[in-house]
Design a binder for these strands. Structure first.
Lengths: 233, 233
DNA sequence: ACATGATTGGAACGCTGTTCCACACTTGTT
DNA sequence: AACAAGTGTGGAACAGCGTTCCAATCATGT
């Protein structure tokens, strides 16, 4: 509605290269080209600049990865209501879906849990899961254990699922997760019955083909443990 | 007792550079110099050879990491007896100790769970944990969920603990885990009570200073969930 | 004594994250 | 209107990485 040709603000240039734009491009690159696809040269090209310019806005690659992770996690956890029944499912599925959409996320989060336990990503997730745990009817003494157990299960299982999906897709666009799980079960059935009786037995009974149901079963298992048996603190 | 100078077997040369020796050196390098310390050049130097020679015995770095992981995990899980009460604790602590001794192990295992779900490391761990689960008095339908939950918790929690330990050591040789946990709790107490009520509450009540007890509490929590509440399959 | 094939180790290639610096552009002051 | 200052840019250059290549060496069968 106001298109005079360069009036007062000549608009520095087309899209002036901000930290936000860099993080956006980084996330896009990670999603499309994978973890190893994020390089400063590829990023430069996509942003139509040189590698040096990026370093004006971002200290190094590590900080860039933290920022990208933080952004995605924040969005995933943004819309949560506390205290409601099934609220843990919402938080868990929020992370689950984010990790499925961004397969690089799970390794990144676990790496940041290790390298920076007081960092924003760590606290964001811990707080969000923990809030649902504290709404459960359990003594405060088991909060930490319960939250930790849930967090590790969510990140591990969701990461595993995302990896399975990515692998299934790489085997051909027609093959879905279901077909891929059959492949895995098939491989497991080849194992020696003497050395690997359990894995074979599980393979025989068939792997679950509904990933979300399987994931939530694990969540419920832990919740059951939390509410059923605090061993008298 | 038999020191004739080079009798029949002149002994090719001092230590002829086998795949086993390479893996040994790699593990040593990972333990002492960390994940980023394992390079083919450092490895060459330690083995008194060139980078090219290593490639005769090992296809690439990825395969070398798989072999190193496999070796350490195999040893950690070697002495396990099935079916005994508390056997899950033994398996869990076996992995826990191995990860504490080799801080690079947890990230490696989770990466291999993703990249190669039918690989030896994956199956080794899954089988060993699962065997203890199947000895529990639960229906076979919950075996997969229970084993998965335990596996992810063990790897996540043990990895976190190892990272904490490494971090504590890097802050000074006198500081132990206990002092480090106080540091973390201190940082958490600085958080805004409005945005992070749960994390603050947990920090106030103090973090557990006995890492193994804390770890086993999580294991027991999951086991309780497994035995108490299969929600009527 | 020779030929063969299994090993070795150093040089070289392409890639990475990162640093450096000469250049443009915007802005505030005269 | 002209200039100084400082913010932002982008391309060149560096060290180090995994990996490949190949001429030289060793152990061995003939």
């Amino acid at each position: 509605m106001t298109p005079p040709p360069t009036p007062k603000k000549p608009e520095r240039r087309t899209t002036p290269l901000s930290r936000e734009r860099i993080v956006d491009a980084a996330i896009d690159l990670l999603d499309t080209a994978g973890e190893s696809g994020l390089t400063f040269r590829a990023l430069s090209e996509r942003l139509a600049t040189g590698p040096g310019a990026i370093y004006w806005h971002v200290a190094n690659k590590s900080e860039l990865l933290v920022a990208a992770t933080n952004r995605v996690v924040s969005i995933a956890l943004a819309a949560q209501k506390a205290g409601q029944p099934g609220a843990i499912h919402d938080v868990a599925l929020g992370l689950y879906d984010a990790i499925e959409k961004h397969p690089w996320l799970a390794p990144q989060i676990t790496a940041q849990l290790s390298h920076n336990p007081t960092g924003p990503v760590t606290i964001l997730i811990f707080e969000d899961i923990g809030r649902q745990v504290s709404a459960l009817d359990v003594p405060a003494s088991s909060w930490f254990t319960a939250t930790t157990a849930l967090m590790h299960y969510i990140l591990g299982a969701a990461g595993q699922n995302a990896a399975n999906l990515a692998r299934a897709r790489s085997l051909g666009p027609d093959a879905d997760r279901s077909a891929y799980m059959d492949t895995v079960a098939g491989a497991w059935k080849q194992l020696s019955p003497e050395d690997y009786p359990f894995t074979r037995a599980v393979a025989e009974q068939g792997l679950d083909h509904d990933d979300r149901t399987q994931f939530l079963a694990g969540i419920d298992l832990i919740i059951t443990g939390v509410t059923a048996g605090p061993p008298t603190a």
